[in-house]
């Protein structure tokens, strides 16, 4: 297992380096000069040149990439020229909010989706299985910003049970938790259906396998068979899905963040792209890339922990 982890982490580092180089090149080829954006329309060519030197944009491209990589490795993402604060500081401040939101959304979706999927598989083709199926497909089909808007209208505006916007006073745990409920509900709802369908499908497949028949032939209790013998195998595709899912959510939770006016990394990327704040775009994208790779690395490692065959394959 340790050997697997070392190899998997090594692979993750390589992926991050390649991704960062690609990102940097992409920003580089995009038309538009960051210096003219920062300095505004009345800047003289001398001022632009000066800023280029300051930002290191006058050096050869390869040197720029290598020095950027070096800085990233030290946790230095450069300076935001608008606010004159380090990019890392801005990004990490937003990151907390996003991570809490994404993890809360996925956690409740998992806690509900996995049992629903198991239930559907065990009681396949019954009325309640079909009901779960219709519910799942329904919530998958509804976009999360629609859920966000309607739940905001209903729970925050009509019923006034929960706060409508913001992330709550920092440091006040209860207030923050109350602010988290609606966005997490909006993001997680589709995932409940997604996870339930996936678990049902892989569970049905596993329950038909020979070793489950053999376990039944030995009279093992049905709960042992479903939760220990079958689920451990049936959960593997879901873990993989969640790995990429969480990674993707970090940057795509933006809809819910905009609707509920929450700070977050998705919103940060959105805002900084609109305002052409290159260092901030770069920093936020690099961080979310690293998190994406981290999240798939973690899910792969969980898979390896569950399945000995995966451990020996990489």
């Amino acid at each position: 297992m340790l050997f697997y982890l070392l190899k998997r982490i090594g692979l993750a580092v390589v992926i991050v380096v390649v991704a960062v180089v690609l990102l940097y090149s992409m920003i580089h080829v995009v038309p538009g000069d960051p210096a003219s954006v920062i300095l505004g329309p009345r800047a003289t060519p001398e001022m632009k040149q000066e800023l280029h030197k300051l930002m290191g944009l006058d050096r050869p491209f390869v040197v720029q990439v290598v020095s950027f990589l070096g800085k990233v490795a030290r946790g230095d993402l450069g300076m935001d020229y608008f606010s004159q604060r380090p990019v890392a500081e801005i990004v990490f401040k937003q990151l907390d909010e996003t991570l809490v939101l994404v993890l809360a959304s996925i956690t409740w979706a998992m806690l509900l989706g996995i049992p629903l999927g198991c239930y559907s598989a065990v009681f396949r083709n019954t009325f309640s299985d079909k009901l779960v199926g219709v519910f799942s497909i329904g919530v998958i089909a509804v976009p999360s910003f629609v859920v966000a808007l309607y739940s905001l209208l209903f729970f925050a505006v009509t019923l006034k049970w929960l706060p409508a916007i913001g992330a709550g006073e920092s440091g006040q745990f209860l207030d923050q938790a109350r602010h988290l409920i609606l966005p997490a509900f909006a993001i997680g709802l589709g995932w409940v259906g997604y996870i339930a369908r996936l678990v049902r499908a892989s569970m049905l497949e596993v329950l038909n396998e020979n070793h489950i028949r053999r376990a039944r032939a030995f009279g093992l209790p049905e709960t042992t068979i479903v939760f220990h013998y079958a689920l451990k195998l049936a959960i593997l595709p879901t873990v993989t899905l969640l790995g990429t899912g969480i990674g993707r959510l970090i940057s795509s939770a933006v809809f819910a963040e905009i609707v509920f006016a929450r700070p977050g990394i998705g919103k940060l990327i959105f805002d900084s792209v609109v305002s052409r704040n290159y260092p901030l775009v770069m920093g936020a994208v690099v961080v979310s890339t690293v998190l994406f790779v981290l999240s798939t690395t973690i899910s792969d490692s969980i898979n390896a922990m569950l399945d000995p065959r995966v451990r020996e394959r990489l």
Binding site: R213, A215, A217, L220, H228, L233, P308, R309
Partner: peptide
């Protein structure tokens, strides 16, 4: 089942649970 009657199946490659140790499976029965 598994007390008075037990079974040996056709395909040994798929008759054992791949993610549980032999010991665990033998203890469970």
């Amino acid at each position: 089942r598994g007390r008075d009657i037990s079974m040996v199946f056709q395909d040994p490659m798929t008759a054992l649970n791949p993610v549980l140790t032999i010991g665990r499976q033998m203890v469970d029965i």
